[in-house]
Simulated scan of single mutants.
Amino acid sequence: MVKQLQPPDPQPGQPKTKQQFEQERMLDVLFLLDLMFVREEATVKQIVDCLYDIGSINLINQRVPSRHLKLCARWIARFSKPAFRFFFLRWFKRNCPQLIADWLYNQVKFEPQQITKAVEAVEVAEAAQIQPTPAVTELDEQNALDHSALFRLLRRAWAKSYQDGRTAQIHTKDGFNPKWEQTAVLKQMVQDFAATAKQDGIMPIVLLINDRGYDDHLYQLLQPTLEQHNIPFVSTHEVAPATDQKNFIADGHFIPEADQKIAAKVLELINTTLNRAPAPKATPASP
Rank of each mutant, 00 (worst) to 15 (best):
G201N: 02
I209H: 12
D164R: 15
F84H: 11
N95S: 06
H253S: 10
Q182L: 08
F37A: 04
N230K: 15
I76D: 01
S235T: 15
R78T: 13
R90P: 00
M26C: 06
Q114R: 15
T167K: 14
R155M: 07
A184C: 01
W103P: 03
Q129R: 15
D140K: 05
L218Y: 02
P15R: 09
D53T: 09
D174C: 07
S148W: 03
A240H: 06
E268H: 15
D28S: 11
E141K: 14
P65V: 06
K3W: 05
R74Y: 09
P278R: 14
F248W: 03
D251Y: 00
I209Y: 07
A73L: 02
Q62I: 04
L207M: 10
T273K: 11
E40W: 05
Q62D: 11
G201I: 02
T225G: 01
S66V: 07
L274S: 01
D244I: 00
G55F: 04
Y105W: 09
L104Y: 08
N230S: 12
V48D: 02
N143V: 08
T17G: 09
E120F: 08
E111N: 15
T183V: 12
Q191W: 03
A83H: 04
I209F: 05
Q191G: 04
E238T: 14
V119P: 08
D211R: 15
E257C: 01
P12A: 00
I115P: 00
S148D: 12
L59V: 09
S148E: 05
I170F: 07
L59T: 15
S66F: 04
K173N: 13
N143L: 05
G252L: 01
L32G: 03
E138C: 07
T137C: 08
L33N: 00
A121F: 02
I205K: 01
L154C: 11
P112C: 04
I130E: 10
Q169V: 02
R156Q: 13
I262A: 00
V122S: 08
A250T: 15
Q98N: 09
